[in-house]
Design a protein around this nucleic acid. Sequence first.
DNA 1: TTGAAAGCGCTAACAA
DNA 2: TTGTTAGCGCTTTCAA
Lengths: 341, 341
Amino acid sequence: MSNDHKRPLTLRDVSEASGVSEMTVSRVLRNRGDVSEATREKVLAAAKELGYVPNKIAGALASNRVNLVAVIIPSLSNMVFPEVLTGINQVLEDTELQPVVGVTDYLPEKEERVLYEMLSWRPSGVIIAGLEHSEASRAMLEAAGIPVVEIMDTDGKPVDAMVGISHRRAGREMAAAILKAGYRHIGFMGTKMPLDHRARKRFEGFTEYLAKNGVEIEDREFYSGGSALAKGREMTQAMLERSPELDFLYYSNDMIGAGGLLYLLDKGIDVPGQIGLAGFNGVELLQGLPRQLATMDACRLEIGRKAAEIISARLSEPPAETESQITLVPKISYGDTLKRR
Amino acid sequence: MSNDHKRPLTLRDVSEASGVSEMTVSRVLRNRGDVSEATREKVLAAAKELGYVPNKIAGALASNRVNLVAVIIPSLSNMVFPEVLTGINQVLEDTELQPVVGVTDYLPEKEERVLYEMLSWRPSGVIIAGLEHSEASRAMLEAAGIPVVEIMDTDGKPVDAMVGISHRRAGREMAAAILKAGYRHIGFMGTKMPLDHRARKRFEGFTEYLAKNGVEIEDREFYSGGSALAKGREMTQAMLERSPELDFLYYSNDMIGAGGLLYLLDKGIDVPGQIGLAGFNGVELLQGLPRQLATMDACRLEIGRKAAEIISARLSEPPAETESQITLVPKISYGDTLKRR
DNA sequence: TTGAAAGCGCTAACAA
DNA sequence: TTGTTAGCGCTTTCAA
């Protein structure tokens, strides 16, 4: 631990301190090739003594191997993506691979920049949220020559592999459950995010199914910014004042749904008798509310895990066989806010 | 976009395609040095046409410059750290610097591994949560020869710079407010995390202040895992059944506090008359509850921003002057669950 | 304004 | 089991 000089230590320093060639030092530090126990110990002692930290930049350049997996997601403030990351981490932890996260804020141009930036580090694989990308982004992904897994959504054609759920189907199934339960006057609340394609697809699936059954959404409202719980409360109040005939409220995420639920309970409204509610995501965080919101699990952890497994399998030597188009099927959880029929 | 060969493109390819030397191509792509408009355009056209993405690994090795800032935090599933990241991002977005995140799960050994891993990419700076690190980690930070900002906590001695709040003081101040409001029978609930030093310090500050005023915590309970909201509810119920004399509940975070609050409201208990409540963090997410929980803002966004500013200032050419020990002072927000006196 | 040569710190491939 | 040589793709430095 006696690095007084400001210059970072190199293999050469360890080599000189231990009297072993740079090459052998390198072998010891990477556990590669046969090295006698004696030299091995000499080297490790010297490296530790000096406080040597290998330079991966040089290593990567020389070996043409970079054990990084680029993970590109729209947001961190959402609770859904951190959970996907957790799944990815769980799997990659048992491998040499390291995730590196980039955030796009749902902006295609930013996605493009982030992707470019990450690819310039020559990662071994890419996990990226969504199937919708700018043309330039798709081109980069195709040209990168590395495994690419598009996650969260399966309504579309992937560049390479994909793991997710069908949000269209999720919307349809919730619509089916709602109609089956006998509700007919439906309001919708969601985020004002034209670029959240998954929310859009859920909405489309939802309305299409209703339309096929002669039902139309009677009121809708979109929000942006602020505390989702508070927004759910406010929007619900506003909507019910405006459209008192509604008997069901479908929320595009659980947080605003929870806000709505708390509002209705406050008001002493009978849920799900007078008004039914459903959200989307299956946010574990909400257990602990006075009533459980009906929702649909987005399979976040599992998506992360499967995506990482695909990357890891493709990168193993020799490449392992894997399915490369995985559609998970979320189940409705009725909770206490959607009648069961 | 016609990279049919699997070999990634190099500067040389762009050089050949444009008839300009590699060196000049490099200059164009980095906007460095004087290049005639004519060649400049030739180069950019060729690069775009080929779909060239520069290799930062080689660039970093040659220039000995890596525009990465290692950000090391204990967890992502917490809502507090994503917000710190947002602050960091906001500031770094206007610079050349890029954050790279590593997660330690509150484990010192994992912190050590993650730190080692990140330092081996020779980042330009480090932002790391907490002041408590293993000896090896401290040694690495000291030896790295780059700006290091320790964040969140200021109760201790930093390796280099620090930005945060005093959690001891936060605990003391909450204790003071509680006593001042007249509560005397206090219960505490928190996470079972011996390695969460900030929660520990808050707890210590809290109990010390109480002790000085002749008050002692009368019941306590710790949880781990599961939905915080649900845990808060369960623990609150259990504690009040066990210790019905309690008139105040102090929660180590807002989520369990919210669970407790919902439970008490369910039960029709008078808050804050019969029982007062307080949490910690200032989670915006909770606005929208029927009552606002008393809490204390942890200044997460500001901490992230200030930390990034310090790194950025230190790295500018010439290095800008900055304060390097910043203690933010959180304010109590009384909400509707703590009497004001 | 442009180009040529050297070398960043490491590892692959080969030799001893 | 260990060492030597060459070179990864870029940028620095210096020369033209």
